[in-house]
Each structure stands twice: as structure tokens, then as C-alpha cells.
Simulated scan of single mutants.
Amino acid sequence: MPIEPITLLVAFIGVFVIAFMKGAFGGGFAIIGIPLLSLVMDPLTAGALLAPLFIGMDLFALRYWKPSTWSRPDLAVLVPTLVIGIGLGYVGLRLLDHRAVAIVMALITLLFAALWLRSGGQVVVRPRSTPKAVAAGLASGVTTMVAHSGGPPLAMYLLPLGMTKELYAGTTSLFFTVGNALKAVPWLLLVKPTTPLWMLMALCVPAIPLGVWIGWKLHQRLDQQQLYKACYGLLVVTALKLLWDGVTGYMH
């Protein structure tokens, strides 16, 4: 089947938006670009399209988020628990109600954002906590497999640490590099891409370096406070999208 021009345009823009988020914030907000793809394809096909492209985004972003931008003490706990969480999410795909998971995650995220607003939009710095890191890694792994959104649990752990914007973005980037690599195979097994889908992936590849680079340029222009405000704002958008997906899922 030939690729329709509108399908190519929407898919290219969707991949660009996700790559832009990767360059600006280190990742975790892919769900904001996914609704664009749902205009021209079903969610499973979109997932299969993005799975290999995520890896391309991650590898390209590592040109900017070098090891000096990784918080090793946090990643030492977050990454192993992420792996476990993805495994639990994969096993639980048939047991867990993804709509309920989306709604619960949305409500928790909105509460987190509301507490930030209550503090006057200031980040209340809290000390590093291993139990919180374990919970964040597990929750992110489960939600990234079940509800396509592992960003909120990680952000809710990292943002209150008050780390520099480079450290926040770099740590987030490496975290999702591992997560996306692990998710790629299950997604490609779940939805075996057709030849036209592989062609569409190839045509969307140029959106990756362009999106990541422009996002990184924005990151450089934002100061610490602006970046954190943007992250909290994106968390609210992500939560509202999750809430919408969960509630409308029960209506169908």
C-alpha cells in the first residue's frame, strides 16, 4: 500500500515533536506527540512505528547529554528498578486494566503539580531517597509498558531534588534510553511492522536530528526556573492526556 502524503506529514510532525521534547527536557513526554500519530493510525501501529525511532532519538541525544550530565547515584537505583518495572508491566499487560492505570497515574501527577503550585511555583528541594527512587523506577517501568507514559513517576522523583537543568535532562535522557531499548522488542513482537510501516519509519528519520537539535537549543536558552516551570506544565498536560485516555476508554 502506498503511503498517503497526509500520513507522512502527520507522522513526521509527531516524531519531530517527540524528538524536540527529548532534546529540550531529556525525554519522558513522548505521550504529547502520540495524539498526532493517532490521527492517521491506530495506537498499536503508532507504538510499533515509534519503538525503533525512540532508540534513534536516544542515541542522537547522547551527543548532547554526555556522561557529565548523568546523576550516577540516582541512576544506580532508578535503572535496575526500571528494568524490573518494565518486566512487571509486560507480564501485567493482560492482567492490569490500562485505563485504570492511566487514571490513577493522572490523578497522582495532578496532585503533585497542585502541591507545586501551592508552594508558589517554587521547587521545594528534598534530600535523595532510595525508597522513593525505587518506587519511581518501578512505577515508570510499569506505566511505560501499560499506559505509554513513564515520564511522570520519574519527574516526580527528580524535580524535587533541585538538580541543575543539565543534570536533570541528562539523567532523564539516559533513563529513557535504557527503557526504550528494552521496550522495542516487545512492541515489535506485538505489532509486526509491514513494509509500508518500515518505509514510513525511514522517511521520519530526518525528523530526529532536527527535533533533538532544536530542543537542545531551547534547553540552552531556558534558565533553571524556566525549565522547571516548563517541566511542571508538561506534567499537567501529560496528566490530562492520561486522564482523558483512561476515562474515554471506559466509554467505548
Rank of each mutant, 00 (worst) to 15 (best):
Y64N: 04
K66A: 11
P67W: 03
P67K: 08
S71F: 11
R72D: 03
P73L: 00
P73Y: 02
D74C: 05
V77A: 06
P80S: 03
P80K: 09
T81Y: 06
L82C: 04
V83G: 03
I84W: 13
I84H: 10
I84Y: 06
G85K: 05
G85V: 01
G85S: 06
G85E: 05
I86D: 13
L88M: 05
L88D: 01
G89E: 05
G89S: 05
Y90C: 05
V91Y: 12
G92W: 03
G92C: 02
L93D: 06
H98P: 15
A100Q: 03
A100F: 06
V101M: 09
V101N: 05
A102H: 07
I103E: 11
M105E: 14
M105Q: 14
A106E: 00
A106Q: 00
I108E: 10
L110F: 13
L110V: 12
L111I: 14
L111S: 13
A113S: 12
A114F: 13
A114W: 15
W116L: 07
G121K: 01
V125G: 02
R126K: 15
P127W: 08
S129C: 03
T130Y: 12
K132F: 11
A133H: 04
A133E: 04
V134C: 01
A136Q: 10
G137D: 07
G137L: 03
G137M: 04
L138Q: 08
A139R: 09
S140A: 04
T143Q: 00
M145R: 09
V146N: 09
H148F: 12
S149G: 07
G150C: 07
G150P: 10
G151D: 12
L154F: 14
L154A: 06
Y157T: 00
Y157K: 10
Y157M: 10
P160N: 07
K165R: 15
L167V: 12
Y168M: 14
A169I: 08
A169M: 08
A169L: 06
T171V: 01
T171L: 03
T171P: 06
T172G: 14
S173Q: 15
L174S: 10
F175S: 11
F175Q: 11
T177L: 05
T177P: 02
V178P: 02
V178L: 00
G179C: 12
G179Y: 11
